[in-house]
Amino acid sequence: MEKKKNILISSNGSSIAKILSNCLVSHNIKFINGKDLIYSKSKELEKLFEKIDVYVHIGFKGFSAKDEMELIDYHTRITYDLLFAAGVKNVEKVISISTLELYKDYEANLTVSENWETKFPLDQPELLCANLSEKVCKEFARDQVFQVINLRLGDLRENSDIRLSEEKLKKSINLMINLDFSSEELKQTKNPFFSARKKGPNWINFHLQDTFEGQKFLTNKIDNLIGV
């Protein structure tokens, strides 16, 4: 049986935070209450990450802002502050929650995989912010501060062409909590010199939607791991 992890989730007010807490119920979960927190006080931020194993950062629709400037501030500066504090407290892994809607502007007949460049309309500031949040997380991973798993989620509502069931999300995210993704990436590498590579990449993307005929996004990568 896997060990219970101490997990911190970036906000508690949003519907995605509630769904994630249902999914991670077998672990010890804490939330950041954004309203009570002064993000500029770095010592207080660091306290939040005491004894935390995994930080789940919601980069899409996890924060309610009064206007677009506040939304950008949360997904850039405050995200930076939170990740910086997580790094100081040696959090081992960050799960970034993003969205498949970052590919909204691709033609419907294309099959999009994890390494495609994102392409989205700019009339929804939430999408720009999800993109910015991913970028901040990625730089922390690139600087080897901690590992980051970036989950681009489908739509948790029923009638969507990128629908994602709570059941699949639960199975996937629980697997991610314990996944040693460096070795998973290496297994998939066919390079003859891969054994010389001491350390895997610190950043990995997974696209997550239900598997059904005509699904828009290729989900082999996650499906192979969870055994769909």
Binding site: T76, L132, K135, E139, F140, D143
Partner: peptide, 17 residues
């Protein structure tokens, strides 16, 4: 690849926008 230095990453995010 700006990394996590404050100056570099804050300018990079502005550039991304």
């Amino acid at each position: 690849q700006p990394g996590t230095r404050l100056y570099a990453i804050s300018k990079f995010l502005g550039q991304e926008i």
